[in-house]
Measured scan of single mutants.
Amino acid sequence: MTEYKLVVVGAGGVGKSALTIQLIQNHFVDEYDPTIEDSYRKQVVIDGETCLLDILDTAGQEEYSAMRDQYMRTGEGFLCVFAINNTKSFEDIHHYREQIKRVKDSEDVPMVLVGNKCDLPSRTVDTKQAQDLARSYGIPFIETSAKTRQGVDDAFYTLVREIRKHKEKMSKDGKKKKKKSKTKCVIM
């Protein structure tokens, strides 16, 4: 069974824990209790493949930012979460993405942009803004509501699919490099 290491990042209060708990335990946590770091595991079937999701729910508070490099190193894919009623959390996505790329030393890291709290009427981040940002990053965008469960499975499952595509691409690139290195030079 394939294991996928997913990391949920975003500013404090955007609903990272609520999304994760909704996926794992099928219930909505409405009281806000700032996370330092929590880890969850769940076995699911995605596109006919049974897999184990190892999900790291991270601290959004700035005082825990020193811990970010460590979990970013171990993560295979990242859910970059903002709240649709919090423009600052949307603007912060850029910083999370840049930090992930720096730590992973790669421009090509599996990510999904997630606009959470889409059940709320007080939207300050337009869907088109988020779609445009995701398009500019070359990553999928999904709106979710941890409260109603809308888009929750889709967000995590899409990230797994992005990781699969990335692994497939990397193995193809690896095979191309191996083929090239088999060419021999004969000096007579």
Rank of each mutant, 00 (worst) to 15 (best):
D105H: 07
K177C: 12
I84D: 15
D69K: 06
K104R: 13
T87R: 10
E49Y: 02
L53R: 01
G15W: 00
L56P: 10
K179E: 14
E98R: 01
L56C: 14
T35E: 04
L53M: 08
Y96E: 01
I21L: 14
M170W: 03
A59L: 04
S17I: 03
T87Y: 07
K165Y: 02
R68S: 12
R123Y: 09
G10S: 00
K167L: 02
A130S: 06
Q25G: 08
K176D: 07
V186Q: 14
G13M: 10
T124D: 14
Q25A: 05
F28V: 10
Q99Y: 08
L120S: 11
V44M: 03
Q61M: 10
I24C: 09
E143S: 14
D47F: 01
T74Q: 13
F90E: 10
T158A: 07
G12H: 02
H27N: 12
L56A: 13
K101W: 03
F82Q: 01
P140T: 11
V186F: 02
R164K: 15
A18T: 07
D92M: 03
R97C: 15
R161G: 10
A18P: 03
Q61W: 05
Q70I: 06
K165C: 04
D54C: 04
P140H: 12
G138L: 05
C118D: 08
Y64V: 12
K16I: 04
V29E: 12
A155F: 01
V8T: 01
G174I: 10
Y40D: 11
A66E: 12
Q22N: 14
L56Y: 13
D30K: 09
S65Q: 08
A66L: 07
T144Q: 14
S39M: 07
C51E: 05
T2L: 05
K88M: 13
A18V: 03
L52G: 12
F156V: 15
A130P: 04
R102Y: 02
E37P: 00
I93R: 00
I84S: 15
T183A: 14
D92N: 08
V103C: 04
K176M: 10
E143Y: 12
Q129K: 07
E162T: 03
E91A: 04
K175L: 13
L56W: 11
K165G: 04
G10R: 00
V125T: 11
D119G: 05
D47W: 01
T58A: 09
V103A: 11
R123D: 14
E62M: 08
L52I: 12
D69F: 00
D69M: 02
S89P: 09
F78E: 00
G15Q: 00
K165F: 03
Q131A: 13
D153R: 14
D54I: 04
Q99H: 08
Y4L: 07
Y96G: 01
E31F: 08
H166T: 05
T183C: 13
L19W: 03
G60S: 08
K104I: 05
V7Q: 05
Y4E: 06
L79Q: 00
M72Y: 09
A155Y: 00
G10I: 00
D173C: 03
K169G: 09
E168C: 14
K169N: 11
